[in-house]
Simulated scan of single mutants.
Amino acid sequence: MLLTLSGLTKRYPTGDLALKGVNLEVPKGQVMALIGPSGAGKSTLIRCVNRLVEPTSGSVVLDGTEITGLGAAALRRARRRMGMIFQEYALVERLTVMENVLSGRLGYVGFWSSWFRRFPRRDVEEAFRLLHRVGLDHMVDKRADALSGGQRQRVGIVRALMQDPQLLLVDEPTASLDPKTSRQIMRLILELCEERGLAAIINIHDVALAQQFARRIVGLRAGEIVFDGPATELTPEVLTTIYGEEDWSQTIRAVEEDEEEAVPA
């Protein structure tokens, strides 16, 4: 098992209990969608995995390494194996596409090399290769603040892959994108995970996209897992359990009728 969460709990200083003893396993190579209403604890769960948010109790084990028990230096090394893709891209606006992408290697190069942006040739070659893969090789010298939302998200994806991770933690990658670009970004993430054998946890609000692009769905409500199963079992009744009473039939039907976006075998 690549990732194991055991009794993961997070209580904020305000007293709010964001996660209530979550138990979750993610095998190598599996893409999992994490859904649930706002405030359910989805972003908190993802950030507890790489300790951008410190868990209150419980454990996070990545490929045999207990993440929650690591000191600062060991945690920096462990984070290399967890690529993070953010909703708001988290790019340095004044830097170029290439400079933002190469920042994904900061955990591997020394301080002065990173300060002067001196990266090994193999890192630069890999950056070019990945930018070509996502269709941005013609924009290497363009500043991040000149890119569209979809282009920025592609840069964020490449930056995460530059870490050579085992696991992608993806936090609402389509929240700021139009419907067509959202599908393109989800398709790209899935294809890259399959090509590189990566596991991924994708926090996503769009239920239809989750059903179209992920085989496994985990539903979170009030800090607890209330559903964990294949996308085909995400019925209106299950969505009511996750989100509350609503007519979910149109959501389910829309997904079932969209055969073009079937998850690859």
Rank of each mutant, 00 (worst) to 15 (best):
A90E: 14
A72I: 14
F86K: 09
G83N: 11
I46M: 09
T65S: 11
V53G: 01
G71K: 08
M84Y: 13
V31G: 10
F128H: 14
L62Y: 09
F111K: 07
R122W: 04
G83P: 15
I85D: 06
L102T: 01
V124W: 05
P37K: 06
G39P: 07
I46H: 02
G110H: 03
G41L: 00
K28A: 15
N100L: 07
V61R: 05
S103A: 15
S103H: 05
A40S: 15
E93L: 08
N50C: 11
A127T: 04
R77G: 06
M84F: 15
G41V: 00
Y89Q: 11
F128A: 08
V97F: 03
A72H: 13
S43H: 11
G64V: 04
A90Y: 06
E54W: 07
S57L: 02
R47Y: 03
R80G: 15
E54V: 13
L70I: 05
T56N: 05
G110P: 04
R80S: 13
L95G: 03
A33P: 09
G69T: 06
L91I: 14
P120D: 08
R121I: 03
G71S: 05
R117V: 00
V60H: 09
G39A: 05
E66K: 07
T96D: 12
V60Y: 08
F86T: 10
S43D: 11
R122F: 02
Y89L: 13
M82L: 13
R79H: 13
G83R: 08
S113D: 15
R94V: 12
D63T: 03
D63Q: 04
V92S: 12
V101G: 06
P55Y: 09
N100F: 09
I46E: 03
L62M: 07
I46F: 01
G58V: 00
Q30H: 07
Y89V: 12
Y89E: 12
T65K: 12
Y108C: 03
R76H: 08
R129I: 01
G39N: 06
E54A: 13
Y108I: 03
L102S: 01
P120Q: 09
R80T: 15
L106I: 12
I67R: 02
T44R: 01
R80Y: 07
S103W: 01
V53M: 11
E66S: 13
G58A: 02
P55W: 08
F116I: 08
G71Y: 02
S38T: 04
K42N: 11
G83V: 11
R47T: 00
G39F: 05
L62H: 12
R81Y: 09
L91K: 13
A73R: 15
I85A: 06
